[in-house]
Design a protein around this nucleic acid. Structure first.
Lengths: 198, 198
DNA sequence: CTACAACCGCTAGCAATGCTAAAGTCGGGC
DNA sequence: GCCCGACTTTAGCATTGCTAGCGGTTGTAG
């Protein structure tokens, strides 16, 4: 029968999706606990209790797995930033809350953040194939920046703030900045951005 | 004779140093022209026309080679920034010149910049074993920031500016920012920093 | 119920990687 | 002229990402 055949295909599709999720989730957890260097095809395959070729039924390469994890990360980042935006009592200080949330996200998920920004170089922004989660996350940041952009170019201003936050995260993580001044740095940056736009 | 023996040792030491330099220079050039992925022990050894174990007579691992290249890069960055500081007619705009020089350095030597910031994670800052070139490069930036720090904490302010510049470089390179607005971003950032310190 | 077929996962293996041990080779000193 | 020591290379190991081809299971049709 046609219908039963379809049902079976559906089940197989569900299993496929579940296993794909299992792969990315395991890769992420493994990276978070032991670093990305520990995420080899062999190690990952034993963790998910399948053999290596199974990985290649779902992803074309190891890089694609990292990319999938990164995408997941951008989605979560967007949610985190949105919650931070709406979480405050007053609309004032929205940028502060978002910036703090961004920083916290990077601190809480170092391996994930690595996948998003250092590991995956193929997730570009300009092109038309830019994935939705990236745009979404950037959009949240942009929304917050709108509250302090006094007539200036919001997009560019958002890019600058994002880059500054990103730089603070990366340099801080690599031991290039004094750890005890982290809060102060964020405060200085935000003070500069709260000033009126040029 | 003792003296001639010493002379021979001196010659050997010179050769050692020259070969060490040959290794780092070749690695750097190779990375700049074909990317760091092309810098394998085999490829590098054929380029320098020696066999692989020679590399390990000078460096403990591939990572140490990258680290040596990175150190070289920090030295050059310090020189570049110093020239930018002294290059202008007026002391005003010193930060602008240094920031532009930083950006230009990163753009002109992408692989080198990668070695300095992304590839080598072992070059830390806080500890007492922080190499001189790192301190020097940071010092140049700091000197420039002094001219605009109206009573604020210069060190922290320098860290923030550095991080912002670094973030702009990295995000820009990975296609996360709109390329045509690069100059505008730098201008916005500097405008924010020219404002009086909080 | 049986034979067939399609699909799925695994075993085994490839080339390339970083790194190392042990053998060879060359120059310098007695 | 002979030997000793430093230096270089040949050859090889373990691990990496990735893939071909076989084996078994599941669903289908007669």
């Amino acid at each position: 029968m046609l219908k039963s055949g379809m049902a079976i295909e559906d089940r197989r599709l569900r299993e496929r999706i579940a296993r794909r999720q299992l792969i990315t989730a395991t890769a992420r957890a493994l990276a978070e606990s032991e670093g990305w260097d520990a995420v080899t095809t062999r190690r990952l395959s034993t963790e998910i209790e399948y053999s290596q070729p199974v990985l290649y039924k779902h992803f074309g390469s190891m890089e694609e797995i990292v990319e999938a994890v990164a995408l997941e990360g951008f989605g979560e980042l967007a949610v985190t930033l949105r919650e931070a935006r709406h979480g405050g009592a007053t609309p004032a200080g929205e940028v502060d809350r978002v910036a703090a949330a961004y920083n916290g996200f990077a601190a809480d998920n170092p391996a994930l953040y690595d996948a998003m920004f250092t590991r995956s170089t193929r997730l570009r922004f300009g092109a038309e194939d830019t994935p939705a989660p990236l745009i979404e996350a950037f959009g949240e940041l942009r929304q917050a920046v709108t509250t302090i952009a006094a007539g200036g170019d919001v997009d560019t201003l958002t890019e600058v703030l994002w880059a500054a936050l990103h730089g603070l995260v990366l340099l801080g993580r690599n031991g290039r900045l004094r750890p005890e001044h982290e809060a102060e740095r964020l405060e200085i940056l935000l003070a500069r951005f709260r000033a009126a736009a040029s």
